[in-house]
Design a protein around this nucleic acid. Sequence first.
DNA 1: TCACTTGCTGACCCACGAGTCATTAACTAT
DNA 2: ATAGTTAATGACTCGTGGGTCAGCAAGTGA
Lengths: 205, 205
Amino acid sequence: MPEPRFRRRKEDRPQEITEAALAAFAEKGYAATKVDEVAKRAGVSKGLLYLYFKTKEDLFKAVIRSFVVPKIDELTAIIDSSELTSEEFLRGPFLDFVKTLPGSPISVLVRLMISEGPKHPDLLQFYWENVVSRGLVALNVILERGIETGEFRRCVVHDLPHLFVMPVLFSVIFKLLFEKHCPDTDQLIEAQIDLLIAHMKGEIE
Amino acid sequence: MPEPRFRRRKEDRPQEITEAALAAFAEKGYAATKVDEVAKRAGVSKGLLYLYFKTKEDLFKAVIRSFVVPKIDELTAIIDSSELTSEEFLRGPFLDFVKTLPGSPISVLVRLMISEGPKHPDLLQFYWENVVSRGLVALNVILERGIETGEFRRCVVHDLPHLFVMPVLFSVIFKLLFEKHCPDTDQLIEAQIDLLIAHMKGEIE
DNA sequence: TCACTTGCTGACCCACGAGTCATTAACTAT
DNA sequence: ATAGTTAATGACTCGTGGGTCAGCAAGTGA
């Protein structure tokens, strides 16, 4: 009895295809990745891929949406389930979380957003609303909590939670481009957080 | 007497073409830019472009090289011609210089490097040696000078001059992607420099 | 077992854009 | 003037890759 030439698995296909696409985009970038190549990686014909995704661009958007949102959900879940003080939280779970980002598959998505984002305003909108904005809000919650409990004094940092994100973005990109010359990203991120906390706790200069 | 159909201007063509290419790449990215389009912008035929640049990739590399090096030369020139203390220098000329970067045509090159860099290792090598590395060295010079004169105490910042560059890269990218939601990049950069200087001057916590 | 639905295939089409080259016309030197 | 040189043109080729579709075979139900 011969193995069937293929199996019908309508349920699993989309995820298998987006996973293959993520891997392919990661290696070659969006433009240089051929749809045929993605299909091959997913063990599927090009025709089938086009049954699930109308165009290559459509596939791209699906990739972004499906991998990035779970990641930010992770962060907000950590926050909600935590009873730590703000400083403990920033030095503990938050630090651990952001340290994992450079070098993870997620960093690939950042590169894709930078490369292709400007061509897809709707995607940028989505990314803003569901990732960046939510991340900044989450940080604000922590920082405000820190003021209420008297841990932190109010200062410029509370208007610029971006200061906490900077080293992560920097590390992701630096590692991507200059792996060989990249500083210890854990140390970089940690140093920045130390700096910020010291400033928020610190005496008025 | 009719205007000549074209003029022979061997000397000026390469620069005119790279300028046109920079503008085109800025708008559409590398892959989506057609060579024909670059030629049109430069007021030149595609054939001529191929007289000066062997391939599209060759043109791309020329663009990076010719616009990015002068910019870093600018920075090192400022350093050499300055007799200020380290703090004055960082808060004065250095701050002014980096503030101009987000939103300048140079920021486009950063995006191009991120998008296309991984496909061109030799270009990355060039960029590292002639831009990033030189920039970091320049910063180190300033910071060391600050220690010698007793302005600064030695701390983690001296091992991570990257901390000064982070907000610039962050601003460039943030502005590029989320113009609408972008914080005041001047303020962000300034805040980071304040933070770092305070820490370097500061009492041991 | 047989008709029927539908997930899946892969050969095909064709727009598109990188790179070529035979030809032209602007300069130059004598 | 005029012959020689070369900057410059633009119509062409040709590989490539996104997208299609007629047909096939795995599942389904009676």
